[in-house]
Design a protein around this nucleic acid. Structure first.
Length: 469
RNA sequence: GUCCCCGUCGUCUAGCCUGGCCAAGGACACCGGCCUUUCACGCCGGCGACACGGGUUCAAAUCCCGUCGGGGACGCCA
């Protein structure tokens, strides 16, 4: 079996958005599934638009998603020397020529064509000229055939045919001597021995041009797979105005990389009815055959649900490790060791969709100045008899071993003494301990808070009650 | 405008290649119920789609043609 080699080739003119991330993911999954090699190449031939910040952001996003590459990153801006011999080769073989038309002249011919109801394009003025000297200002154009068809056998879409007459002579080297995208990709994909080009559907119509160049150069043509685009809720291509589209934004909102990968993979790809995939499963099951050909709408709710699913199945110590830096970033003190933190986190694990939500919900475990919800106080705390709370207080104070069983027993004894149902006891206690009427199971909360804080908060609640009454 | 791609519940999709197993399955969201110490989780149920029109066939979501709709590409951007 020949070694499969894929690549992800972003242009660093902004952060990595979810569309790019999905393209990267598909390349990664395909390579990993096939035991191939995944290459990262930064397409920064456009010096104007490329920035170091974008490069850093892209690399950071890739790292966060865990899309580790085997070779690279290669920077096209540092590879200037490799392209010129190929240009000269094309000129020598008559497949490319120097063109002295100015941008203004080309614009004019495009305008004329458009006005005449024709496709705007280069009209071939310099095709037959032999008097354009290398010294004078010029670009180099690739000579495309006027007749015939060029077919792309796309792995996702099947065979697609283009009329060669539709494709005009494109510039492969600018007047400043730098090569352009459509040419550079061909050379780089050849030089990097890429066997499978997996990229966005917006490149489908570039493909015949590139295939023509492979052939003119006498080089092997790779396989192509054009993955459908991601759309916003309004059906147009996903962009900033549709909300959060950068990968890093999801990290900041408390999403798990595995959940983002899972969501992005399932947007356009499927494996029967399965919805939840670990990274290992994604690698095991991924196939280009099961990538659909229609564009998909980005659905934040489903991503959120998937994040919840991944969060829910995260082992407690790993969950603790995830939230620890988030808690520290808020300058909150953690009143316990890692085991305590893990225990605390598990009580909230099925109650939060993101890490951030979980930390928000952990407020009363980590802060002592509770924000009392007035309505909860009115409804549950004020109606409670002080003697019941103080009975519970002393029962808890008497516990020898602070564990779940003892806590449960303490509640039982108060309930029996006062002929109460748990609901009548739990709600006032919940408000006293958490400040609100919503929390994990009351025994868990008591256990995690610890005796000192439980007693202190009960005392405080008792003061409120007796002070007010 | 020209060329190319796409079209199954609101959304992601299974099914389409190899027509009958589909009075179209799963998931998110939404609505109801159950469970229950609150909130969640979980469980059960509900709502909801083959874009349209022709053809081929005993039979079409599946094959063919057309229409309409959406998207993409037409750069000295990538």
């Amino acid at each position: 079996m020949s070694q499969i080699r894929t690549r992800f080739a972003p242009s660093p003119s902004g952060y990595l958005h979810v569309g790019g991330a999905r393209t990267a993911l598909f390349n990664y999954l395909f390579a990993r599934n096939q035991g191939g090699t995944f290459v990262l190449r930064i397409e920064d031939t456009d010096r104007e638009r490329s920035t170091d910040e974008s490069i850093a952001a892209i690399l950071e996003s890739m790292h966060w998603l865990g899309l580790d590459w085997d070779e690279g990153p290669f920077y096209q801006s540092e590879r200037g020397d490799v392209y010129n011999p190929y240009v000269e080769k094309l000129i020598a073989s008559g497949n490319a020529y120097r063109c002295a038309c100015t941008p203004a002249e080309v614009d004019a011919m495009r305008a004329r064509a458009q006005a005449a109801g024709q496709r705007p394009g280069y009209d071939g003025t310099c095709r037959e000229r032999t008097d354009v000297a290398p010294e004078q200002p010029h670009v180099v154009r690739f000579r495309t055939p006027d007749e015939g068809e060029t077919g792309v056998d796309d792995m996702i879409r099947g065979p697609v045919l283009f009329n060669n007459s539709e494709i005009d002579d494109l510039i492969i080297r600018r007047s400043d001597g730098s090569p352009t995208y459509n040419f550079v990709v061909v050379v780089d994909d050849v030089e990097m021995a890429i066997t499978h080009v997996v990229r966005g559907e917006d490149h489908l119509s570039n493909t015949p041009k590139q295939i023509m160049m492979y052939r003119a150069l006498g080089l092997p043509v790779p396989r192509f797979a054009h993955v459908p685009l991601i759309l916003g809720p309004d059906g147009s291509r996903l962009s900033k105005r549709h909300g959060a589209t950068s990968v890093m934004a999801y990290r900041e909102m408390g999403y798990l990389p595995d959940a983002v990968n899972n969501y992005l993979a399932r947007l356009g790809w499927s494996h029967g009815d399965q919805e939840i995939f670990s990274r290992a499963e994604l690698i095991e099951y991924f196939s280009l055959d099961n990538v659909g050909s229609s564009a998909g709408v980005f659905n934040p709710e489903k991503l959120e649900w998937l994040n919840f699913q991944h969060l829910k199945s995260l082992a407690a110590p790993l969950l603790a490790a995830q939230i620890k830096p988030l808690i520290e970033a808020r300058s909150w003190q953690i009143p316990g060791d890692d085991a305590w933190l893990a225990r605390m986190a598990t009580t909230l694990q099925e109650r939060a969709k993101t890490l951030n939500e979980l930390v928000d919900a952990a407020y009363y475990y980590l802060q002592d100045d509770l924000a009392f919800d007035e309505k909860a106080v009115e409804k549950h705390l004020k109606s409670a008899a002080p003697e019941i709370l103080s009975a519970l207080r002393s029962a808890l104070a008497d516990i020898a071993e602070w564990d779940d069983a003892s806590i449960h027993a303490a509640f039982e004894s108060v309930m029996n003494q006062h002929d109460l149902k748990l609901g009548k006891l739990a709600q006032p206690v919940r408000v006293a301990l958490t400040g609100g009427s919503v929390s994990p199971g009351i025994f868990e909360v008591v256990a995690v808070l610890g005796r000192d804080r439980v007693l202190r908060r009960l005392d405080h609640a008792l003061q409120l009650l007796t002070g007010a009454g």
